[in-house]
Deep mutational scan, measured.
Amino acid sequence: TYTYKLTDEEASRRAEDEWRNRGYDVRVRNNNGTWEVEVR
């Protein structure tokens, strides 16, 4: 499981799409203004 911490929502969406396209399960959540993109 990888977790990315990003401050930019758009960057988190791009990361989400990119990993999803590669067949990974992705979750995005906002934690106090930081976007966490979790990849498994």
Rank of each mutant, 00 (worst) to 15 (best):
Y2S: 05
Y2W: 15
Y2L: 11
Y2Q: 08
Y2H: 11
Y2E: 06
Y2A: 07
T3S: 07
T3I: 14
Y4K: 03
Y4Q: 04
Y4P: 03
Y4F: 14
Y4E: 05
Y4D: 03
K5P: 06
K5E: 10
K5V: 14
K5N: 11
K5A: 11
K5R: 12
L6M: 14
L6W: 09
L6N: 05
L6Y: 15
T7M: 14
T7F: 14
T7G: 13
T7N: 13
T7C: 15
T7R: 13
T7D: 14
D8N: 12
D8E: 06
D8L: 04
E9L: 09
E9P: 07
E9G: 05
E9Y: 12
E9M: 07
E10D: 11
E10P: 08
E10V: 10
E10M: 11
E10L: 10
A11P: 03
S12H: 03
S12V: 15
S12L: 11
S12D: 02
S12P: 01
S12Q: 03
S12I: 07
S12Y: 07
S12R: 05
R13Q: 08
R13A: 06
R13P: 01
R13L: 08
R13K: 11
R14S: 07
R14E: 08
R14I: 11
R14V: 10
R14P: 02
A15P: 02
A15N: 04
A15W: 11
E16G: 11
E16N: 04
E16T: 10
E16A: 15
D17S: 14
D17P: 01
D17M: 15
D17Q: 15
D17I: 15
D17K: 15
E18V: 12
W19N: 01
W19M: 05
R20I: 07
R20K: 10
R20D: 01
R20E: 03
R20F: 04
R20Y: 04
R20P: 00
N21T: 10
N21H: 10
N21R: 14
N21F: 08
N21P: 00
N21D: 09
R22W: 06
R22H: 06
R22C: 08
G23S: 01
G23N: 03
G23F: 02
G23E: 01
Y24I: 03
Y24E: 01
Y24K: 02
Y24M: 04
D25R: 09
D25V: 12
D25A: 10
D25W: 12
D25T: 12
V26M: 00
V26F: 02
V26R: 00
V26W: 00
V26C: 00
V26H: 01
V26D: 01
R27N: 11
R27P: 03
R27K: 13
R27E: 12
R27I: 15
V28K: 03
V28I: 11
V28E: 01
V28Q: 02
V28F: 04
V28T: 06
R29G: 05
R29W: 12
R29F: 13
N30D: 08
N30Q: 12
N30Y: 15
N30I: 10
N30F: 15
N30S: 08
N31F: 11
N31R: 10
N31W: 08
N31P: 02
N32D: 09
N32K: 08
N32Y: 05
N32V: 03
N32A: 08
G33M: 03
G33R: 02
G33V: 01
T34S: 10
T34K: 07
T34A: 09
W35A: 01
W35R: 01
W35V: 02
W35T: 02
W35P: 01
E36W: 14
E36N: 04
E36Q: 06
E36K: 01
V37E: 00
V37S: 00
V37W: 01
V37H: 04
V37K: 00
V37R: 00
V37M: 06
E38I: 14
E38W: 07
E38Q: 09
V39P: 00
V39T: 01
V39G: 00
V39N: 00
V39E: 00
V39Q: 01
R40N: 07
R40G: 07
R40S: 13
R40F: 13
R40L: 11
R40W: 14
R40E: 06
R40H: 08
